[in-house]
Structures are given as C-alpha cells and as structure tokens.
C-alpha cells in the first residue's frame, strides 16, 4: 500500500476523538479516518486505502512516519487494519517502539530505495515487496533490487519467538527490586 506523503503524524493515523475506547479493539475502522472518509462517512475516492487496486500487509510511507503523539492507538489501528510491516525512510522514535512492542515491523530503508519501491508500485500496483526478517532484507520482487535493514538482535528474537518486554522484565523482578531499594526517590 503506497502512501508517498511525508511527516504522517499520529493524529492523521488516528485522530484523538477516536481514542476513547477502554479496550483494544476496532481501531482499524478509524485508521486515517479524516483522509479516508468525508464528513458524512462516505469513503474519499482519491485516498489510497479506498482504491481496490492496492492491497497487502506492507504500508510504504514517506519520511518521518509516525511523528507526534505517543498514542499506541496509532500502531493498534495499523495492526488492526491488517498491516504487519511499515516501510519508510525515517520513523519517529515513539512510533517505532510502539510498533515493535505490538508486533508490527518498522523497516527503515534509504531514501533511494524508498523511491524505487514507489516507482515499482506506480509501474504496477500489484508489484510485490518481500520483507525477510531472519535475513533482514527487503526486496522488490519484479526487479530483484534488495536492501538490508537494521533491527537489534533482542527485538528480532522477540518478534520471531512471540516474546515481549513484559515477559523479559517479569523474569528479572528480584534484580529490579534490589535496584529500587537503593533509589533516593
């Protein structure tokens, strides 16, 4: 799914008025709400999510994706809609952490490679892009062009094995307890 817009902030991903649930469900319906729907809730024809020619689990976006608010709801909305990977040339820090924490893989590529992906999708809306986590590569299938991406080995291990930080922290409670005992606050 191509979205060649820069600085997509979390207020666009999910506007604040849709943050009022006390459970984590249904956020995908309001993903990109104000870009996706008119005021009367009819879909905006020119918005990419409403164009049936595009599909897939990878969202490809312009630089500085996910800036602004720390709302994890933004990552939940992307996940709930069905994306499992976001590709951009630059991510905001909190969004990147939130994504990794809920099982979305943020793939940071060079500006040149991002352009190549957009060009490939422009040429063929069904162009396939493959993200390989074990190898840490992203490949444009049609052209065979590929690039390596970074992820620290701790997070990679977690994603591959379905562990999370809470599991890790629970396993070191006594170490935290003795650390806390020395704190002046």
């Amino acid at each position: 799914m191509p979205m060649p817009i820069e600085n997509v902030d979390t207020d666009q991903i999910i506007p604040a008025r849709f943050l009022k649930a006390t459970e984590r469900k249904g956020f995908g319906d309001n993903l990109f709400r104000d870009w996706r729907y008119e005021n009367d809730n009819t879909p905006k024809k020119d918005f990419v999510l409403n164009n049936p020619i595009y599909s897939g689990k990878i969202l490809v976006a312009g630089k500085n994706f996910g800036s602004g608010s720390s709302r994890e709801h933004a990552a939940w909305a992307i996940y709930d809609y069905g994306f499992r990977c976001v590709v951009s040339s630059f991510f905001a820090d909190i969004f990147k952490n939130n994504s990794l924490n809920i099982g979305i893989l943020p793939v940071q590529v060079s500006a040149e490679f991002l352009d190549k992906i957009f060009t490939a999708i422009e040429a063929d809306p069904k162009a396939e892009v493959e993200v390989n986590l074990p190898e840490q590569t992203i490949t444009i299938i049609a052209t065979g062009e590929s690039e390596k991406f970074d992820i620290n080995s701790y997070k990679k291990h977690n994603l591959q094995n379905g562990y999370d930080d809470i599991d890790y922290l629970q396993a070191m409670k006594s170490e935290i307890q003795s650390f806390a005992a020395k704190s002046m606050y």
Binding site: S70, R71, E72, H73, A75, I94, N97, N98, N101, I102, D164, D165, I166, L169, Q170, M172, K173, I176
Partner: peptide
C-alpha cells in the same frame, strides 16, 4: 511512552 510501556512500568 506507549501503552505497552505503561503496562511495563506498572508491572515492573
């Protein structure tokens, strides 16, 4: 921080 991290701070 995000909500997953809020849960981390509460629990650990």
């Amino acid at each position: 921080i995000g909500t997953s991290e809020v849960e981390m701070v509460l629990s650990s």
